[in-house]
């Protein structure tokens, strides 16, 4: 079995900008192992989100190879890509993107409904996810009644409830204060340790970077640096 959860080779993503062409990703060759807690870092416009979108099968590269969970994403039909996302990939967004008409419980339950998991099991899995993020007492609340930190914890619970192999988090702390950012990162690191879920972040937030075991720096769409750090609990100490 391939031990790489994501592999890219000479990944190129171009966007037309008027008459010019912008290279959001330029010849990016990277691979991530199962269970990693890694981040793609860099300034705005460096290509972090584009990389995550391609890895999450929401976008396709202009050229190059991208294999996610052993599947070449260019050859995936939209239905198969949707199936891959349903079963194996979770997303955490900067702006939480909770479904406003649904309660916390229903938001977290949503991915399980797509997986057609039975009612009793769903209930148990949502309860577990709420426990992991410490929101068991807010299950009946609507997103509008939650703080930013609570919303992001719900988003994390929604991403992890189905125990996916891969979670892609795009600037998960950008809308949070320092304390909430650390809480969120600690929660995700614990889930990484306990459930073995691979977390890949796109961030330029120093607070997030302190928790990462691996930092890949992108500059102008190119890999500038790929750095493995020691088992990190630095964030906690700060």
């Amino acid at each position: 079995m391939n031990d790489k959860i994501i592999e890219t080779e000479k990944l190129l993503k171009e966007y037309p900008m008027g008459h010019a062409v912008l290279k959001a990703l330029n010849n990016v060759s990277l691979s991530f192992d199962y269970g990693e807690f890694a981040g793609v870092v860099g300034p705005s416009g460096s290509g972090k989100t584009t990389f995550l979108n391609i890895a999450g099968t929401l976008d396709s590269p202009t050229s190059g190879l991208c294999r996610v969970l052993g599947q070449n994403i260019e050859s995936l039909s939209s239905r198969n890509a949707a199936e891959l996302r349903t079963k194996s990939i979770g997303f955490i967004f900067q702006t939480f993107n909770l479904l406003p008409a649904y309660t916390v419980f229903e938001n977290i339950e949503f991915p399980l409904l797509l997986l057609k998991i039975g009612k009793d099991e769903r209930k148990k899995m949502v309860a577990d996810a709420l426990k992991w993020v410490g929101l068991s007492d807010r299950s009946d609340s609507f997103p509008k009644d939650l703080s930013g930190g609570e919303c992001q914890r719900v988003a994390i619970a929604r991403a992890v409830v189905k125990k996916p192999k891969l979670i892609l988090a795009d600037e998960p702390t950008a809308n949070l204060d320092a304390e909430n950012s650390h809480n969120i990162m600690r929660t995700m690191r614990n889930l990484n340790k306990e459930l073995g879920i691979t977390f890949i972040f796109a961030t330029h937030d120093e607070k997030v970077m302190r928790y990462l075991k691996r930092k890949i720096t992108l500059v102008d769409g190119k890999v500038d640096n790929d750095q493995i750090t020691e088992e990190s609990d630095k964030g906690e100490k700060l």
Partner: peptide, 14 residues
């Protein structure tokens, strides 16, 4: 549009 995109990201087909 964001909600629609989120639904697609979570695995719903268009």
């Amino acid at each position: 549009k964001k909600e629609i995109s989120t639904l697609i990201a979570m695995g719903m087909t268009k």
